[in-house]
Simulated assay, not measured.
Amino acid sequence: MRTYVSPIGYNSTSVVRPVLSRGVDPGDEICLLRPNEESDEQRATEAIEDIKRLLNEIEPDVTLTLKRITYDDYPTAVLECSDIITDANGDVIVNLSGGARDILVPLTTASFVHSEQTNATLSFSDIDGSVRELESPAMTASVPDNVASTLAMIVDQNECVSVPTLTEELDRSKSSITRHISSLEEQGLVQAEKHGRTKIVQSTFAGELYLRGRGSQ
């Protein structure tokens, strides 16, 4: 089972395309987010009905739900979006496309905070009409200073780096570097794989972003 979470404005395509890119099965749910107050209720209703019609033609046993978000209070909106993601059933797929920015921005924040609970984050391009999967940074990652210095060395390499190289460059034991890498990997800040008997490490987008945020503190 999948639960798709998506803002909806007046353009049904920004919702339907991402959903179809992953497919729909019986029992899937499409959760649409709208402001708690509407400026054009009729156009919004038409877009929702259009989505319902298109999806029912493909899979009649799909549940379409509408959630109202407090658009004029950012913290409240983020918490409401957070609740929707954490309460969702099955695989959670967040669509960061379309809808009012007042909803899209809080949903983006909530999806980054819940990156571990989110199976995929999609975006529909207004430029070329393609659907792309986005890499969500680990917003809740936290590492001590000595582990952060290992991450910084990995990021500075701009490519894969071996554990022996890290131990030499940082003048630390192999066991210490191995523990650091395990901690960073668990939080999604690096990727590691074995090449023969040597472990090779590379930073992720989340790792680079985390390090930039840490440097600004």
Results as ranks from 00 to 15, higher is better:
residue 196 G to N: 08
residue 190 V to L: 05
residue 163 V to F: 00
residue 14 S to V: 13
residue 14 S to Y: 01
residue 102 D to N: 15
residue 63 T to Q: 13
residue 173 S to T: 15
residue 59 E to F: 06
residue 117 Q to S: 10
residue 167 T to W: 02
residue 139 M to I: 14
residue 84 I to V: 11
residue 214 R to P: 04
residue 105 V to E: 12
residue 45 T to P: 01
residue 106 P to H: 05
residue 116 E to C: 00
residue 159 E to N: 14
residue 113 V to L: 04
residue 127 I to V: 12
residue 178 T to W: 02
residue 73 D to F: 04
residue 209 L to T: 15
residue 75 P to F: 00
residue 216 S to K: 14
residue 209 L to M: 12
residue 44 A to H: 04
residue 91 D to P: 03
residue 195 H to T: 14
residue 85 I to F: 00
residue 147 V to N: 05
residue 168 E to T: 13
residue 177 I to P: 00
residue 114 H to P: 05
residue 84 I to S: 00
residue 60 P to N: 12
residue 10 Y to N: 05
residue 168 E to S: 13
residue 197 R to G: 03
residue 211 L to C: 04
residue 134 L to Q: 12
residue 62 V to Q: 07
residue 75 P to N: 02
residue 112 F to H: 00
residue 20 L to T: 02
residue 73 D to V: 07
residue 107 L to V: 03
residue 44 A to T: 08
residue 45 T to K: 14
residue 10 Y to F: 13
residue 70 T to W: 02
residue 37 E to Y: 06
residue 164 P to H: 01
residue 87 D to G: 00
residue 118 T to W: 04
residue 117 Q to F: 06
residue 65 T to N: 12
residue 108 T to C: 07
residue 100 A to K: 14
residue 165 T to F: 00
residue 50 D to L: 12
residue 41 E to D: 12
residue 153 M to N: 13
residue 192 A to Q: 11
residue 34 R to L: 12
residue 20 L to S: 07
residue 57 E to Q: 14
residue 196 G to H: 02
residue 132 R to A: 15
residue 148 A to Q: 09
residue 48 I to T: 09
residue 151 L to N: 08
residue 104 L to W: 03
residue 103 I to K: 09
residue 115 S to T: 04
residue 112 F to A: 04
residue 189 L to A: 04
residue 58 I to Y: 07
residue 201 V to I: 15
residue 12 S to R: 01
residue 28 D to E: 12
residue 116 E to W: 00
residue 109 T to S: 09
residue 131 V to F: 08
residue 139 M to R: 10
residue 62 V to Y: 10
residue 86 T to M: 04
residue 68 R to G: 00
residue 71 Y to P: 07
residue 114 H to F: 08
residue 166 L to F: 04
residue 147 V to M: 06
residue 181 I to L: 10
residue 122 L to D: 02
residue 58 I to P: 11
residue 137 P to N: 14
residue 116 E to V: 04
residue 112 F to M: 09
residue 89 N to L: 01
residue 206 A to M: 10
residue 94 V to L: 14
residue 145 D to F: 08
residue 143 V to W: 06
residue 157 Q to T: 10
residue 13 T to D: 14
residue 118 T to F: 06
residue 91 D to Y: 11
residue 163 V to Q: 10
residue 201 V to W: 08
residue 126 D to I: 13
residue 28 D to S: 13
residue 12 S to H: 08
residue 166 L to H: 06
residue 57 E to T: 12
residue 117 Q to H: 12
residue 135 E to G: 10
residue 92 V to P: 06
residue 194 K to C: 03
residue 43 R to Q: 08
residue 85 I to W: 02
residue 200 I to K: 13
residue 23 G to F: 09
residue 10 Y to A: 06
residue 143 V to N: 06
residue 128 D to C: 13
residue 137 P to H: 15
residue 61 D to S: 15
residue 26 P to Q: 09
residue 14 S to K: 06
residue 212 R to C: 03
residue 132 R to T: 15
residue 171 D to G: 05
residue 59 E to H: 11
residue 83 D to S: 08
residue 85 I to G: 01
residue 155 V to T: 03
residue 176 S to K: 14
residue 60 P to E: 15
residue 169 E to M: 02
residue 153 M to Y: 03
residue 54 L to I: 15
residue 141 A to F: 11
residue 37 E to W: 06
